[in-house]
Design a protein around this nucleic acid. Structure first.
Lengths: 337, 337
DNA sequence: ATATAACTGAAAACGTTTTCTAAAGGGGTG
DNA sequence: CACCCCTTTAGAAAACGTTTTCAGTTATAT
């Protein structure tokens, strides 16, 4: 069916070896011969079969992305960054969505390895898998780079956003603009939530004010917004929003949006009576009224950087380092300035 | 490096032919032999190399998805639906993001063909490419299914959502709940916008009321929300929102959200003074306050259905039909009920 | 003349599936 | 009991479309 290297060789009157050499330019070929071959290639519109190529070269020019969800704007940006970088380097990408299931993540990785992908990026790996040592063996088989997730004491290639830094700055800003008692909103269980909670606790103790930690039920994006809204409305009878507590910091923008919605419903003016800061800077944070102040994780850059690291890793064979991407407090309209 | 079919054959004391037969179960093998081979496979943990397999079978068990954007919640849901269906049928998926560029779409498709994917799904194909006849040749090479986009007089495999139906219902609902003059918001140019505008025009003429068509500048998701908001605020000096015009229908939820934000800023109460209905039912529409009434396109189902059609197409070799997926008016809080 | 560089092709290799050939066994027929 | 035919089972070898190794020939420089 399709035209093969044999057809080209016949057309140009040379051996397939020579054709291959012209294509790959990795061996001297006489100018005149080269030209004949190139003409034949053009005339027949020959495209080397990448499958055959992969078989002998053990290289597929493809990478696998494993990601918990794609209806979550956070991950979406990361994937976008990876895809862009990958395509610019003419890699194709396989996508696998795990729904945050640790087993599914393992399956995805194994499947990618069977497919002989050149490398794998795992976004927000399941902590369970990091601790089980699953990846310690894997990285002997194929380059893997992780984006965020649990990385303490783990000697693998990571690109992680400096959440501590950004979160601290957000807290500092709230305090500096006159907020004393600040509510902290987190989800059920994750490395990142624990990290932020620790920072929050320390900070609150330091400024000698009251702690209030609200843990909202997990769920999909819509549910997180909704659950947070409900939780806030619930506690609003117990503590006076805008009086006892005048500010709120959330572990992500979905929760912050939920809080904002609660305030709208409760008639609490944001930011006049109550300040809210989110985290991540997903696109949603610019679609609310007022627009959310948040901490930018630069997810696209996380994605691009992870792809860049992976490609270096693939080329060099050397495991990459841990790279810390800075976060940045972005002040919009949902908090005092 | 990796264990091959040769190793298994040696271990089991049979030929590679037999091993292959045991694996594929497409030829009789004596029970006892089969068992020996199976043990060897297990013992060596043998995984057939899919590359070699693809080379001879001309089948990759992979499909390509071409999509304009992934930071757009609309497409995200479609991709999610495709991914789920594909994975359940043990297909892997290649992802390519075109940013709505017609050339990029063509490149993506060609690249997928070079990769010998078994099939391709193009989400929201560029009208330009549909009309140029590009795909007419392509479908002789590989099964392609399209999701939405321009499909008039085009004889290819489509799964399209019945936008007409849903949009009409939304207009009817607005009219039935006492709205006479309704603003129509659309983007610059697309098949879908034109379609809706035609319906709008006809409807408005029918009920004998005033037309007001607002075209907002294109851009990414954030910009669409922002541009719509600004446009609404702009025209609010020219026409009295809540008096001259008491309702608005938008071509998508981003625009509807922008309109909602404008109302919040202008102090116009939604839905008490002004009704808004969006389109698509992206997750954002459930994250606003008030929650957006909208027309559900069931994007996940669009995705699943397109994958299902593609797989049937691949198996049977017969081009699939045009399938129309029903849309559904979803009444939430942003309009009278 | 001779060593070296430039150029080329035949054949092996990559790891499967598939086709072709054949051995072994079973059962019926004369 | 010898023969033949068919079915079951199995392996050798070809095929898929490349790259790479090895070997060899021709041109160039010393």
């Amino acid at each position: 069916m399709a035209v093969t290297i044999n057809d080209v060789a016949k057309e140009a009157g040379v051996s397939i070896t020579t054709v291959s050499r012209v294509i790959n330019g990795n061996y001297p070929v006489k100018q005149e011969t080269r030209q004949r071959v190139e003409e034949a290639i053009k005339k027949l519109n020959f495209q080397p079969n990448p499958i055959a190529r992969s078989l002998v070269c053990r290289r597929t020019n493809s990478i696998g992305i494993v990601v918990p969800s794609i209806t979550n704007m956070y991950f979406t940006e990361v994937v976008d960054g990876i895809e862009k970088y990958a395509r610019n380097n003419s890699y194709d990408i396989f996508l696998n969505i795990t729904n945050g299931d640790a087993k599914a993540e393992i399956n995805a990785v194994n499947k990618f390895i069977e497919r002989y992908v050149d490398g794998i990026i795992v976004v927000d790996p399941q902590t369970e898998n990091m601790l089980s040592g699953f990846y310690d063996e894997i990285v002997n088989t194929v380059p893997v780079v992780f984006v965020n997730g649990y990385h303490q004491e783990i000697d693998l290639s990571f690109v992680i956003s400096n959440e501590e830094n950004g979160f601290k700055n957000a807290l500092k800003h709230l305090n500096k603009t006159g907020h004393k008692n600040i509510i902290f909103v987190r989800g059920e269980s994750s490395y990142s939530y624990d990290l932020k909670e620790n920072i929050y606790r320390k900070f609150i103790k330091n400024i000698g004010s009251r702690e209030y930690i609200l843990t909202v039920n997990a769920g999909n994006s819509i549910e997180v917004v909704e659950n947070t809204k409900k939780s806030i409305i619930n506690i609003s009878s117990e503590i006076k929003l805008g009086e006892d507590f005048t500010a709120l910091i959330a572990c992500n923008d979905l929760m912050a949006t939920g809080a904002l919605n609660a305030c709208l419903e409760l008639g609490i003016k944001v930011p006049d009576e109550f300040s809210i800061i989110g985290f991540d800077n997903i696109i949603l944070s610019q679609m609310t009224t007022p627009k959310l102040s948040t901490v930018d994780q630069n997810m696209k850059k996380l994605g691009e950087k992870s792809a860049e690291m992976l490609f270096n890793y693939i080329e060099s064979g050397y495991e990459a380092d841990k790279v810390l991407i800075n976060t940045k407090l972005i002040l919009r309209e949902s908090c005092r300035i």
